[in-house]
Design a protein around this nucleic acid. Structure first.
Length: 674
RNA sequence: GGCGAGGUAGCUCAGUUGGUUAGAGCGCAUGAUUCAUAAUCAUGAGGUCGCCGGUUCAAUCCCGGCUCUCGCUACCA
């Protein structure tokens, strides 16, 4: 079943460049990918490890607006920050690129053109107003003109505020741009859609029949999507920020970020090597995408469909998606600043990259969401890394120096049990290999630690400190065996704890010994000199952990005290356009087949109205009945789940909660709020 | 609401193609030990395997329903 691959292309999800990297990213994607890649390299495989910043999309443009800088400035900042923290942390990318690169623009454009020329896309053309001054198409609400019904000269492209009529922009007389004030011309505009439905049967065969070995979360979600039936998906957007759609008449349109981002893997490979094609087009290349569970559909359905459509690319062999990591019982959130940031960790815990790698690997969310706590971080460091691994190495080296001046003793007197133990270690090695190859990194690490456990047990049972004066030959054998185990730990630790392995290599003066030698030939020759023991790990004190926990608590406080920025001033006229009234809720019920919608009947005094509000997660219907609330009464009606909603009840946002606004004293329904 | 994944010891997780006493690590208790960063080693306590029903001689594992968590998705002006 296992194919003999000639080479491996390993990608890890492109982090979105609107914030720094946190432990959730690491545990979900980058650490497992890095372990896998380091392992393949050690085994002598031809492997490239690809990543980069995903720098397009609307959230970045919004952040830029908020901070009054350009999108490029935003992505420059975070790209640099993310890149550096990955480097310092030891994620061993062969290249960490970015999607604002020239190579990427060319690659993404070319990819689009290829599909375009093959006639893959569905094109839908509509006529839209075009602002010749701004050189862009305008959304309906940015178009003003004269209402054909009431003659109001300031009607919007979607609605006339005066007579309340719903309009199309083309209904307006003398349409003008609300932004530049200039006259508008009607222009045809195209949108391109990738017809995923046409790839459905191929995807179905490829995943559901040929990749039953995929993780259950991945397989299950793919099946769910395929069973629902796939729909064509737009690949273009009306935005300035992104890769321009490389087709005539596509000014002001860019590739939708989901289309351009995965192509980033390919462009990064191009940037890395002129010989890039064999990593993406040769059938003997094994392509693996490491991602988080939120990305499953894109990497298993959408991107493969793109690759199939293009025709010359290979498809991923596996997509080992992890679940999510929580922090101290709460979802990690960039916007709420509820996270352990990598760049801060690196500053506050210098030289402790491997501790975080260890803890996040041991508790990796492979099968379900897991929780990271600082207490657990401390315990795993103190009672596993220090007490089991570090301690065993230290014991061995101290004894070697104490009894044999640091030189490896000649081992002549080996017992049957000792052969068996060494065989067991060889077995553990192959368990580690199997686990890594099947993406079970938690188990692999556990197996690795079992080697150190065996060592500690062996030392305690053989008690060389009692034998040194009675039986020197046995003592020599025991220490030599302990050194072999220590050497094994150095070699097999490389994928998991690269910094620690490096330290161990230096301490042991290890050279010219490879992963494949372990279990086949002795690591040391008698007389080989090892250095003095240095502690591999330090204990982490309670105060350090308390500091981190307090820091988190403070960031929660800060977030709660954080106020939303004020919007720009408006004129009184603009305010006066809103007609807010007091109304009493007379009836409320859940809208069937929705989670969050309530159908609410309100009494405005002069009329009864039905409003649909998304507040079912905060209020039960009966809690609202009889309450007086504020209603934005002249909001354009809108159909929601088949119900016409006339107006909007005003709520206060209080964290996750929504709280209805009520007058202090009871007033007449229909009263004006001003 | 639809779909997917998960709910097993105090914590983090394995596992059982249904079959006598359900496992690991950490934590806890007791004992041993001192080469070692009060580290190590042994032993032990602790679980109606989310809830209810069904199939079966027998279910934690199969089937149906329910419930909780997370995600995708729809809808939240």
């Amino acid at each position: 079943m296992q194919k003999n691959w000639k080479r491996y292309t390993v990608t890890s999800a492109l982090p979105y460049a609107n914030g720094p990297i946190h432990i959730g990213h690491l545990a979900g994607v980058y650490i497992p990918a890095d372990i896998y890649v380091r392992y393949l390299r050690i085994k002598g495989k031809d492997v490239i490890f690809i990543c980069g910043s995903d720098e397009h999309g609307v959230p970045i443009t919004i952040k830029a607006l908020q901070e009054k800088v350009t999108p490029q400035q935003i992505v420059d900042r975070y790209h640099a920050m993310i890149k550096k923290s990955f480097e310092d942390f030891g994620i061993s990318f062969d290249i960490y690129s970015r999607t604002t690169n020239k190579v990427h623009y060319e690659t993404a454009s070319q990819f689009f053109k290829t599909l375009y020329n093959k006639g893959i896309f569905i094109e839908k053309t509509t006529e839209q107003y075009y602002d010749t001054e701004l050189n862009q198409f305008l959304a309906d609400r940015y178009i003003v003109g004269t209402c054909p019904h009431c003659g109001n000269e300031k009607a919007y492209g979607d609605q006339c505020e005066k007579c309340g009529t719903s309009l199309n922009p083309t209904d307006l007389i003398n349409p003008r741009s609300a932004i530049s004030g200039s006259e508008l011309v009607l222009k045809e505009t195209k949108h391109w859609f990738l017809p995923l439905d046409k790839f459905e049967s191929a995807l179905r065969k490829w995943i559901l029949e040929e990749h039953t070995e995929w993780k259950s979360n991945v397989y299950g979600q793919c099946k769910s999507w395929l069973d629902m039936g796939l729909q064509p998906r737009a690949v273009s957007r009306d935005l300035e920020w992104g890769v321009p759609v490389p087709v005539e008449g596509a000014q002001g349109k860019v590739l939708y970020v989901w289309f351009d981002a995965p192509i980033g893997y390919i462009s990064a490979t191009k940037e890395l090597s002129s010989d890039w094609e064999k990593y993406w087009k040769d059938k003997d290349t094994c392509l693996i995408h490491f991602i988080g569970k939120d990305n499953i559909v894109f990497h298993c359905i959408v991107f493969p469909a793109m690759l199939m459509a293009e025709g010359s690319y290979i498809l991923p062999e596996n997509v080992p998606a992890n679940e999510f990591l929580n922090l101290e019982g709460d979802k990690i959130s960039t916007s709420r600043n509820w996270a352990v940031w990598l760049h801060e960790y690196l500053q506050e815990f210098p030289g402790k990259q491997d501790v975080l790698r260890y803890v996040l690997t041991a508790n990796m969310p492979e099968t379900k969401d897991n929780d990271f706590t600082w207490k657990d971080f401390q315990t795993r460091n103190n009672s596993e890394l220090v007490a089991i691994l570090g301690n065993f190495v230290n014991r061995t080296l101290v004894l070697t120096h104490k009894y044999f001046n640091g030189s490896v003793p000649l081992c002549q007197d080996i017992k049957q049990e000792e052969f068996e133990m060494l065989n067991e270690i060889a077995q553990i090695k192959s368990n580690i290999e199997l686990n890594i190859e099947t993406f079970k990194f938690r188990d692999a690490l556990k197996e690795y630690m079992n080697i150190a456990r065996l060592g500690n047990k062996y030392l305690t049972e053989t008690e060389p400190w009692k034998l040194i004066n009675k039986d020197i030959e046995r003592t020599k054998a025991i220490i030599a065996i302990c050194l072999e185990i220590t050497g094994t730990l150095a070699i097999l630790g490389q994928p998991f704890l690269p910094f620690t392995s490096e330290k161990l290599y230096k301490m042991l003066n290890l050279e010219n010994i490879t992963w494949d030698d372990v279990g086949k030939k002795p690591i040391f020759k008698a007389g080989h000199v090892v250095n003095k023991a240095e502690l591999l790990f330090d204990k982490i004190e309670d105060s350090v952990i308390e500091y981190q926990i307090n820091k988190l608590k403070a960031s929660k406080q800060n977030f709660q005290n954080n106020y939303v920025q004020l919007k720009n001033n408006i004129s009184y006229d603009e305010f006066a356009k809103m007609d807010v009234r007091i109304a009493t809720i007379t009836h409320a019920e859940k809208v069937p087949k929705t989670d969050n919608l309530l159908k609410i009947t309100v009494d405005l005094g002069f009329e009864q109205r039905i409003v649909v509000s998304g507040v079912a997660h905060c209020y039960k219907p009966e809690e609202l009945i009889g309450k007086q609330v504020c209603l934005l009464a002249n909001l354009e009606p809108r159909k929601i789940k088949g119900i016409e909603s006339k107006g909007m009840i005003l709520f206060v946002e209080n964290g996750e909660q929504l709280v209805a606004l009520s007058p202090i004293n009871s007033v007449k329904n229909g009263s004006v709020v001003k």
